[in-house]
Structure formats: C-alpha cells, structure tokens
Amino acid sequence: MRRNRECIMEKDLLNKIIALRKKLHEIPERSLAETKTKQTLMQFLQENTTLSIVDCGKWFYAVRKADVGDRKAPVAFRADMDAVCAKGGQPGHYCGHDGHSSILAGLALYLDKGKTELNRDVYFIFQPVEETGQGAKLCLPLLEEKKIGEIYGLHNIPGYPKNHILIKEGTFACASTGIEIRMTGTPSHAAYPEAGKNPGFALAKLLLEVEKLMEQVNETRGFVRMTLIGMEIGSDSYGVSASDGVLRLTVRGERECVFEEYVAAIKELAKERAKEENLTLAIHEIERFPATENHMDSVKKLRACAAKQGLPVTELKEPMRWSEDFGYYLQKTEGAFFGIGDGEDHVQLHTEQYEFPDEIIETAVRMFGGLV
C-alpha cells in the first residue's frame, strides 16, 4: 500500500503535464463557460489513463478505485478550470488555474500508472467557476454521495520562494463579499433641497460608520477589512438635488463567524441610516466566498507529507487576504488548502503578464501524491 511513500514523477509524464498546461493556457475561458477546457482535460485523461470519468455537465470528476478490500474513507483532490477576465472582458489564465488543472491531471496519471496498491478510492474534482465563488457549490454533493473523508487543494502564490510549501493553521484564505448598498429618495430643485430626499449624507455617514466598526472588530474579534470600491450619487445636472445613490464595498474577514457578524452589522447600519432619512434601501451581495478554514489534523498531514517528500515548508503567520471557494468543501468534510511558492520575484496574480511557472508542477504532484 502507498503509505508515506515518496512520490517521484518520470520525465515523460512530467513533459506530458507541462504540454497540457501550455495547451490549456492557449484556450482560457471565463467562469461557467469552460467548455473547451473541460473537453481538453477529459480527452487527456481518456487517452492517457484507465480511470473512470464522470461528466457532470458544467464540471467532471475522475476516480481511481482502491486495489484492496480493507479500505479507508475516500480522499478527494480539487482543481479549478476557469480563467480571469481582464480589461475588455477577455479571459486569460492570469491566476494559474491552467496549472492547477494540469497538476490534478498529473496526479491522475501518476496514480493510474503506479505499481503500488491503494487502500482508498481517490477522486479528482475538476471544478468550474472558482473566480466568482460559485463552482464549489456545484461539486459539493459529491462529498456526501461518495462519503469522502478528506479533501485537499492548492494555489500557486507569487512572492514566496519557488517550490516552498506554504502552510497555515486555521484560516488559509479570508472570507469576502462585495456589498452594493443603494439608497433612493426623491429629487427636488437644487435651490430647495429640503423639498426632496437626498441620500448623499446618509451614504457618507454610513461609510464612516462602517470604517469605525471595522476598527472596533479588529481590536476585539479578529481581522476584518472594508475596502471602498466606489460611490455614485446624483448626476451632472446642477439644478437638481440628488435622489439616488449607491455605495460599493468589498468586505473580508479571517474567521467565518466574525465575518458573518460584520456583514450583518453593516446591513443593519444601512437600514438605520435609510430609515433615519426616510429613504428606500436595496442591498445586494456580489461574489460571496467563505473563509477557507483548514482542519488541524489535515494540516499536520501536510507537514508530514512535505517532510517525507523532502520539500521546504514556509509557515504563514497571516492568512491570504484573497478568497477561495474551497472553503465550502472544508465546511462539509476534513481537509486543508495549501500554497506553493512561484518565486519571490514572480509576476503577481491577476495581472496580464502572469503565467503559471511549470517548475512547480512536479512539487505539486509530489505533495498530492504523498497525501493519498
């Protein structure tokens, strides 16, 4: 059985995975439109493995069944497939999801070609729509259906030493959501503003209150952050008092429970300010992500795996401020999310100059393989 066995990739297998990554890089697709990407990955697995592949419409999974009767609970590994949309709406693999999918395909090939017996089923989840936080929800039923006992995922991260395994106890990536707060009153002649209802002062007051609340929560409950994305009020008609305004914020937090309370408190403040000025209120959340909160036992397995593979580890002192919908999986079963360093000087994520570094693919497959 595979128990703490060092995972070594053959050169021809590694070359296949790098070629796949480059092919995926040339066909980036926006969230919920990953048609060619999905087809390319499924065809690759069909041509290069004997694994069972299940098409689930917007996503798919493959499974490597256990070889022995006395089985442990199944383990799952997840990779995302969608691309980031840059200026003009054109998609590009500026986050490295082409690399993530290729790594998971590489693990599938490695386990399929391996000569050692496995004592558990291994599921490979190829997930769409990570960039908007909706993809994990599509795949979640598989965890209960297959009684998956553990799930693992990773992300490449610039600014850290290349091939270092980045581990964080507790929250690896913060929860976040966009919040759009619209207040609507009634217009009036600019000479008689008292005859109308202008939302400008209520929204301005709300913004300052949300910032003060952020400071209070940080001092007493843990990290939260509010970022002003935009505020729009009125028009360029200087003879008309504004009657409609919108405040756009992005809110994030380290711990899910604190984050939820902070978001709820913002909404309550908005209701109070709208009621105070007799304004109509509409609140919308955009692209909500849960906190990616690692399970302690799974973090210990990450450390042990890295040590067995002889891979350097960087223990993160703070969570990543960006968000990952992998947190939904960790709300349902044991598991952990970790990072792999792209290099201290590597181009930053979500920029048009970014491309996934192929030099970390073997390290990623070794980590996943060691966790089986």
Score class of each variant (00 low, 15 high):
148 I>F: 05
150 E>Q: 13
150 E>R: 13
151 I>R: 02
151 I>T: 01
153 G>I: 01
154 L>T: 10
155 H>A: 13
158 P>G: 10
159 G>K: 10
160 Y>C: 10
160 Y>L: 08
160 Y>D: 08
161 P>D: 05
164 H>M: 09
165 I>H: 13
167 I>T: 13
169 E>M: 10
171 T>D: 00
171 T>L: 00
175 A>D: 05
178 G>M: 03
180 E>S: 04
180 E>L: 06
184 T>P: 07
185 G>W: 04
189 H>W: 00
189 H>V: 00
193 P>V: 09
194 E>N: 12
194 E>D: 13
194 E>H: 15
199 P>H: 08
199 P>Y: 01
203 L>S: 11
206 L>N: 12
207 L>W: 14
207 L>V: 05
209 E>W: 04
210 V>G: 05
213 L>H: 09
213 L>V: 06
214 M>A: 03
217 V>H: 00
221 R>E: 10
224 V>K: 04
226 M>N: 09
226 M>F: 02
226 M>G: 04
228 L>P: 04
229 I>Y: 03
229 I>G: 06
230 G>Y: 12
232 E>N: 11
232 E>V: 05
234 G>D: 03
236 D>E: 13
239 G>Y: 14
242 A>D: 10
242 A>L: 12
243 S>T: 07
243 S>N: 15
243 S>Q: 11
244 D>V: 08
246 V>S: 10
246 V>M: 12
250 T>N: 15
250 T>E: 06
254 E>C: 04
256 E>C: 10
257 C>S: 15
257 C>N: 11
258 V>G: 01
260 E>F: 08
261 E>F: 03
261 E>Q: 15
265 A>L: 03
269 L>Q: 14
269 L>R: 15
270 A>T: 03
271 K>E: 14
273 R>F: 12
274 A>E: 02
276 E>C: 15
279 L>M: 12
283 I>N: 11
284 H>D: 13
284 H>A: 14
286 I>H: 11
287 E>P: 06
288 R>A: 14
289 F>A: 09
290 P>H: 07
290 P>M: 09
290 P>A: 14
290 P>D: 05
290 P>F: 06
291 A>L: 04
293 E>A: 10
293 E>D: 06
293 E>Q: 07
